[in-house]
Amino acid sequence: MKTLFLIQFVSLIYLANCWPFPIDLIFELAKITKLEFDTLKDIVTAADHVPQALTGFSLVPCPAQSEPPSDFTWEDFKGTWHEIERTAMFEILETGQKCTQFSFTKESDEFKINTTVFSEILNKQLSASKTINVKDQKNVFGVKINPIKESQYWIVDTDLDSYALIFSCEQILQASLRNAWILGRKPTLHESIRDLLVKKLGSLGIPESSLIKSDQSCSTFIPFND
């Protein structure tokens, strides 16, 4: 079981610099004892996506952030979004998780991102919440992952009612690490809209081959209340 512990530990370090929710969920997964062997098998299977994940690395700097859609407001963006597809980097780190949902809410004067997933390993729903730091460019927001690190995310495109495309790029000297999430108000997204978003990701240096479809097959999943 030392191998599983090592994988979880490395994942924890990586997640401290990435998308805001899974780090809290990894703490839950670290408590597992009975199902460690099955989990390890799942991780080995997910490791097949490593070549896809590596396509998120680029030897050029991050692209410039574009202006938000003309009608974009955080008030209209609030609510629940289902993860339709994500970059393959997270396929290994989110082993055993499905039905990922993000709920953007406003509490007092603060916006928050509340994340829920269903863990097949623990056989229960897991949740985490982070405060959003909305930037001067309103479609850009930061999430503090740890006391000294804030990662930035960019809402590239959304119609507010059915789809959203979120992009993240971490500068590493003159190189960059790029990740993206295609979201939908419903667990499925029309293929024509999906193709349009994939084309936009291509212009940002993320090829279609780096994307993994998210499993949204939860009949009894209960999201955050909007």
Rank of each mutant, 00 (worst) to 15 (best):
L15D: 01
H190F: 08
S70K: 10
D157G: 02
F90W: 10
W181F: 14
S162L: 03
E85A: 06
Q152Y: 06
T73S: 13
G184C: 07
L93I: 03
V50K: 08
K31H: 03
A46S: 13
I148R: 08
L29Y: 02
V44Y: 11
D215K: 04
F111H: 09
Q216C: 04
N17G: 14
W81D: 03
F221A: 05
V140N: 12
P61T: 13
A164C: 00
Y153M: 00
C169K: 03
Q171V: 12
F102N: 01
E83Q: 09
N133Y: 04
F90E: 11
L12W: 15
T105C: 06
F167E: 06
F37A: 09
E91Y: 09
F77W: 03
S70A: 15
E36N: 11
L25K: 08
S58P: 12
S209G: 14
T95I: 11
T95Q: 09
K41N: 06
F104T: 12
L93G: 02
N133A: 06
T188A: 01
F141A: 07
C169H: 05
L211Q: 04
E91W: 05
L4D: 14
S66Q: 14
F57N: 09
F104A: 10
F141Y: 12
L35V: 13
V117R: 01
F37R: 12
G184E: 05
L93Q: 02
L211S: 07
L29F: 12
Q171T: 01
S108A: 12
F27N: 10
D157N: 06
F57H: 07
F21I: 02
E170Y: 04
F111A: 04
F9C: 14
I206M: 10
F111R: 00
Q65M: 15
L201A: 03
D24Y: 06
S58H: 13
F27D: 08
K200G: 04
I182G: 01
E91T: 12
K144M: 05
A88T: 12
V143P: 11
I145D: 03
I121S: 07
D48M: 13
A47L: 06
F37E: 12
S119N: 02
D195F: 12
F221K: 10
E83C: 08
F221W: 02
I43L: 12
T115C: 00
N179Q: 14
E107L: 05
S209A: 14
V140D: 09
Q65Y: 15
I92V: 06
K41Y: 01
A16I: 04
E120V: 04
D71F: 15
K200Q: 10
T73N: 01
S162Q: 07
K124Y: 03
C18V: 14
N114K: 07
H190D: 15
R194T: 11
Y163Q: 04
F37S: 04
Q125V: 00
K124M: 04
E120L: 03
I172A: 08
P63Y: 00
P223N: 00
F167S: 09
N225F: 08
L165S: 02
